[in-house]
């Protein structure tokens, strides 16, 4: 069987490197996390001992864990909808003026921050946010408003992290939305317009259904950015503070693991994060994917 398709040995041979890379570096560590959660690590002797449920209990009693879990939820609830809806509105605007000489300029400006690393994004904003003589406060004072302490203010810090994260990430979704919208036949939209369908009805009845596979992809990938990559921004901007107001579960995991060598507790935090991601992904597939119409 050497025709147009490959024999099973050749197929297996080409897949094997990818298969084993994924198995060893992604699946095996997850299994190990489960094991580590019930072990204690002793940095001095580099030895492990059985800890039973002590790690789980310690994490559960840790106030930092509760704050981190709550913040993780808040980040998701604020950032996921914002990063799905705002880029959609911008993409709709860009389509409205497609053909204009300014359209590629807007597109490039809006995409630019996506090229910045998460940690660098935090570092770019540090001087702008500086409470003493940062640019943002200068602007506030210039228009007669009181200055803010931004990321060093316990009440504002989480929102500052949200804004910087949004700034750094929305460009990617904009590109995806725009690409999806541009494949929708122009005639279909014109026909609806002539039938008297207003802007929002056209978006709801034509654009969203026809772009729904992209919409679903955007939704799923956005959850991961929000959970995972945000850590770079948190670390540079706030270090999880003030008073742990901006920490999240992955950041707590990193602190417990590297800073305090509590690998067992860190694994428990990892497992909780995994459970949250699995739940969110399940909910998305269960309730959103049904409405996706694949052309």
């Amino acid at each position: 069987m050497r025709g147009a398709h490959g024999g099973s040995l050749q197929t297996a041979g080409l897949v094997a490197p990818a298969f084993f890379a994924v198995a060893v570096f992604l699946y095996l560590p997850i299994a190990a996390s489960g094991l580590l959660a019930v072990l204690d690590y002793h940095p001095a002797t580099r030895a492990f001992s059985y800890a039973g449920l002590a790690n789980i209990e310690a994490v559960w009693r840790d106030p930092a864990f509760r704050v981190a879990a709550w913040n993780t939820l808040v980040y998701c609830l604020v950032l996921v909808p914002a990063q799905v809806v705002v880029p959609l509105l911008l993409a709709l605007g860009l389509r409205e003026i497609a053909g204009s000489r300014l359209a590629p300029v807007y597109y490039a400006c809006l995409f630019a921050p996506t090229l910045v690393s998460f940690s660098v994004a935090g570092a770019v904003w540090l001087p702008l946010l500086n409470p003493i003589n940062g640019v943002l406060n200068e602007m506030l004072i210039a228009i007669g408003l009181p200055p803010s302490r931004w990321h060093t203010d316990a009440r504002a810090a989480l929102w500052v992290v949200c804004v910087v994260t949004f700034w750094k990430t929305f460009g990617l979704n904009l590109v995806l939305w725009y690409a999806a919208l541009m494949t929708i036949p122009r005639e279909q939209i014109e026909a609806a317009r002539i039938d008297g369908a207003g802007f929002f009805r056209r978006v709801r009845d034509i654009d969203i259904p026809l772009a729904s596979p992209t919409a679903f992809f955007i939704l799923v990938t956005t959850v991961f950015t929000t959970l995972d990559d945000i850590v770079g921004i948190i670390d540079v901007l706030t270090g999880g503070g003030p008073f742990e107001r901006t920490t999240n579960l992955p950041y707590l995991l990193w602190q417990k693991g590297l800073v305090f060598f509590q690998f067992g507790q860190a694994s428990v935090v990892a497992l909780v994060t995994i459970a949250i991601v699995a739940l969110l992904t399940f909910v998305q597939f269960r309730f959103v994917e049904r409405r996706v119409t694949y052309a």
């Binding site: 560590p29 997850i30 580590l36 995972d228 990892a270 991601v277 992904t281």
Partner: peptide, 17 residues
């Protein structure tokens, strides 16, 4: 088996690795 890993956040493998 391979594409499901798209849904694996990096934090879940960090400690054992």
């Amino acid at each position: 088996f391979v594409i499901v890993t798209m849904a694996f956040p990096t934090v879940m493998v960090i400690v054992p690795t």
